[in-house]
Design a protein around this nucleic acid. Structure first.
Lengths: 187, 187, 187, 187
DNA sequence: AATGAATGAGTATTCATTCAT
DNA sequence: AATGAATGAATACTCATTCAT
């Protein structure tokens, strides 16, 4: 049922999805749906939390095996964890993108927003401190990487490209180049 | 009227905006609104085309004064044209982002999608041919730059950062670094 | 269960009371409730009959010990039996008042209506025959007494007065004065 | 429309009357009804206020021509004003009786309740002060008279009697006897 | 005997759209 | 050209009732 809701909300948005549609997609009668949910808003928040939680899990699993791994290795792990998430949970990815601003999301759902980027922010901060990343503001680094990822997934969804390893690898390269500190010119 | 529609659709989405709301925001009676539009779908498509057209105009104006300008200069011009568009037409930017997948968009609206990125693609192709850009697929380059821009604007809208010259400049730097061919290691 | 139904129906009326509410108030699951009742209409009729029966019992018990008692004594007994009923069974009293016209009541329930006032009508008829009551139509006498009682109870429920012995005694006096034959003027 | 609502609410109660029924009885489509009302609760309160206002008008018109009229004359005027109201506006009378306790009535509607009986209370107070009325509490006098009236009208509605001049006159006699001070026994 | 999930018709209300004025 | 009342299908949600467990 949450699965059907995820699909429909991701495809048509909150207001574009009706309760009868949700019920039908869940294989339930309208009245039965309300035995499981409290209302449409509670449902979309529930779906939101589950999607965020899937993403959070994917990110947490991406911590590299050794804490002494290079920053590049950490970035690599993070990147492919995100690509993997986008590929295995495309609906959750699309849902999160489409709904992260909805007026129907409650305070708890919104709070998740910040926590989710923590692992990324952490890696960035560490890299900046070590001088391994470009000397621009941390948010600039984060939005570039995150934006490149989202842009790539959106383009794939729109049919402009295929989200295969080659493409994901190419964008990984550009994203890393975007944030890595330039090699100092040889003197 | 189209302006009021742009605002409401950008804020609340297509299904979240009602005709009475649109009429009120336009300072018209609901009956009068229908003298100017054919229906809600036709209206959203009209708004879509205008927003796309605004963006297209911004991009076209960004072709650098001299065709002999360096690729970096062209990128610079393009980047700030887009930043300028995002800052002067935030509603159009948000609208385009939110609606580019809607089932209510007609074939003509969807067709605009591809044409719009033509100036960017053109610059990219030229750069790749000249070996000035990273040797990855053209789409990878484009989605990275476009993604960084959108990511930055979204982050600003969400309140995570302010879209000032410093931030936009920082992200320009990362975006360029993302796509520029690496300097060959000094021998 | 019938008790819970009496309370809810008296407070909120037939249409204002739902089966889930009735089940919850009865401490039963909704499915279990239906093991005891046939439906909502049958239930309200059942409650109606029980309330009427309670009132009938109260009235019957009020026949004075001696059949030779004065009419005033009989009236007194009847009056306080009714006041007692209103005080000990306020929900039944309120229920009867609120529901005696419902389209959901079946023929049997409606039939009870007439039988119930029989003891009162009997006393009135006897008194009129003996010239002890005012020489107006019997229904006029009955509606005055019954109306005074109901008016008093309603006023108490609305908080305009307290249904204590003093008030009930006062209204007994006015009600009796209403129907008692006037003393002939002394010559 | 308010007229149709008065009829239906009086017959079936608030919860027993549906919006489609109200619309049909008003000769309107459901959607059109909502151009005239804000909601079902607002409608029932509107109807309530109109009915109360009708009753208030009837009572005010009942002030006897001369302020020096006897108390009996004042009572007579008041009584027949109420009987007239019950006969010419039977639905308003029934509506007020059925709804004066509803949880859906707002504060303003409830406030009307007290004001309405003011003319009656005034006459009663004057009579008690002058020793022309029975020496029992004022509320006892009022509920008896009001109860007799309501009892009579209800009985008529239930078909137990006909609300003609003879019956109304009979009950006027009993109601007056109920509250008039007893003639002192001749010495 | 009891439960509570399931149902689909019913609830109040809002919608996009039309049309007489 | 403009209005806003009218419409009935749609909305989210609740109801009385059934039935497998």
């Amino acid at each position: 049922m949450l699965d059907a809701a995820l699909t429909l909300f991701a495809e048509r948005g909150f207001h574009g999805t009706s309760i009868p549609e949700l019920a039908a997609a869940s294989g339930l009668a309208v009245g039965s749906l309300y035995r499981h949910i409290e209302g449409k808003e509670q449902l979309v928040n529930e779906v939101y939390r589950r999607a965020k939680s899937l993403l959070a899990t994917a990110l947490v699993r991406a911590v590299p095996p050794s804490p002494t791994a290079t920053l590049r290795a950490q970035f690599h792990a993070l990147w492919w964890a995100l690509v993997d998430f986008a590929r295995t949970e495309p609906r959750a990815f699309a849902f999160l993108e489409l709904h992260h601003h909805g007026a129907y999301l409650d305070a708890e759902s919104r709070a998740l927003e910040l926590r989710i980027l923590a692992p990324i922010a952490q890696v960035v901060e560490r890299g900046r401190a070590a001088g391994e990343l470009r000397a621009v503001s941390a948010p600039a680094l984060i939005v570039t990487v995150w934006g490149a990822l989202v842009g790539m997934v959106r383009a794939a969804r729109a049919g402009y490209l295929t989200l295969d390893d080659a493409v994901a690898g190419d964008v990984e390269e550009t994203a890393w180049a975007a944030i890595a500190a330039p090699r100092p010119p040889n003197v």
